[in-house]
Amino acid sequence: MASQGTKRSYEQMETDGERQNATEIRASVGKMIDGIGRFYIQMCTELKLSDYEGRLIQNSLTIERMVLSAFDERRNKYLEEHPSAGKDPKKTGGPIYKRVDRKWMRELVLYDKEEIRRIWRQANNGDDATAGLTHMMIWHSNLNDTTYQRTRALVRTGMDPRMCSLMQGSTLPRRSGAAGAAVKGVGTMVMELIRMIKRGINDRNFWRGENGRKTRSAYERMCNILKGKFQTAAQRAMMDQVRESRNPGNAEIEDLIFLARSALILRGSVAHKSCLPACVYGPAVASGYDFEKEGYSLVGIDPFKLLQNSQVYSLIRPNENPAHKSQLVWMACNSAAFEDLRVLSFIRGTKVSPRGKLSTRGVQIASNENMDAMESSTLELRSRYWAIRTRSGGNTNQQRASAGQISVQPAFSVQRNLPFDKPTIMAAFTGNTEGRTSDMRAEIIRMMEGAKPEEMSFQGRGVFELSDERAANPIVPSFDMSNEGSYFFGDNAEEYDN
């Protein structure tokens, strides 16, 4: 993207840094990872977990959730003011799984939030270390993106479920800051804005008074975040219109849905970061690795190297396929839920299948599930090659597409044709070009129609051997075009429920 120079890199967003050079960025990201790792080690000690239990991804998720809940100030305040039966607002906890007599047992633990905050700050040299908290939120978000298709949420806001490739980060909490905003897809931002506008339509006082002023500035800020994701002048001009509207209503909703559809071809720039579970960072720190000293990046080879040398386990339900569970977590670790499966298959070195073909449910185990038949197995999170994460949407291309997802959002900077089903997408653009945004709409449609099938995206960008740390010898991959490109292809993934 041309304006790259004016933006802070995501590592800076990730670490609240002012302008830093590459070495400083690597050190501050490393410091953040160190903090998460030290916190995780301490929690495993508190909970008396064995090494194996500490490497269980379900335990990692519970521990991450506990610290996120302990620092969720708004919710904590709300819980104190609106006490609900049987919930102690000062405590947080969740299921911890232990191996007892050759069987997995679930144990519900409860801790004072104050105590968890103390352990977290102690692991982070006394700081609140917001960057580390956001990092864990993005890992949870990436896992949700890989596990669930947001059909219901899309339909509720009037969008087409086939636009799911635009929904990265749709389950990120509001408090995820600049680093969170960077990884949100165009569809996620559109959905947040539509929800806001709908509230304004239904509630006369939404934009009024002292609160209304705050609401208005939040609305304009979200519009600017979305505008910054678009790469064409016409899309940005249309966002200006939406932002400046005196009284946002149905016309703005129409414009936003139009823009979301246009992003299936004229893709937005959305950041991709490899955020790993805390149970990967903990053992690495415990083994003596100093992330701050060595430096770390979320968008280069580092996460690949770390996963190459990590042992992570997962509980497996009786009829689940461990290899499929591994694929789910591998995609989440690489922030690749909406990437082209052919690119992923090449990088991973084994075939990556669409969601609907995987015999696996989510990673988390519900409290009512029976533990008797639970097994555990090693997650295979290694890769054959590594590639640089991208934040450009890439230019655009036609490809055989599917009944489910009709476009992709690249996660890796790797040369390819970008699949999208042009006739299906263009069919949504018939007729409606009147109104105050008509010239911009016409211009956007013209650009979409001009998108050429034979153009290559990320020209000359390749993948790298894991021994090639400096990215000196790019390998331009070859793809098996007979395979499906979309992950949520004609899909039956479970729906995400809060």
Rank of each mutant, 00 (worst) to 15 (best):
M1L: 14
A2T: 06
K7V: 11
N21R: 00
E24T: 02
K31H: 14
M32D: 09
D34N: 05
G35I: 07
G37Q: 14
T45Y: 09
E46R: 03
L56R: 05
L61K: 06
L68T: 00
K77N: 04
Y78N: 13
E80F: 01
S84C: 00
G86F: 02
P89D: 04
K90L: 15
G94M: 10
R99D: 04
E107I: 10
L108M: 15
K113H: 01
K113G: 08
R118N: 07
W120N: 11
A129D: 09
G132V: 04
S141H: 08
T151A: 04
R156Y: 06
T157F: 05
P161G: 03
L166Q: 12
S176D: 14
G177S: 15
A178D: 07
G185I: 10
M189P: 04
I197F: 13
R199I: 13
F206G: 12
G212W: 08
E220G: 13
R236C: 12
R246T: 05
A251D: 05
D255N: 15
L256T: 05
G268Y: 12
Y281M: 09
A284V: 05
A286V: 14
D290K: 10
E292Y: 07
Y296E: 12
L298C: 14
P303H: 02
Y313M: 04
R317W: 11
R317Y: 06
N319C: 01
N319Q: 01
P322C: 00
M331I: 07
L341T: 12
L341G: 12
V343H: 12
V343Q: 08
L344E: 10
F346W: 04
R348T: 02
V352I: 15
S353T: 08
S353R: 01
G362H: 11
Q364R: 13
I365T: 04
S376P: 12
S377H: 03
L381P: 14
Q405D: 10
V408F: 09
Q409T: 06
A411G: 13
L418H: 06
F420D: 02
A428W: 08
T430F: 01
T430H: 15
E443V: 06
I444M: 15
I444T: 00
I445Q: 06
M448W: 12
M456R: 15
F479Y: 00
D480A: 01
M481I: 03
E495F: 13
N498V: 13
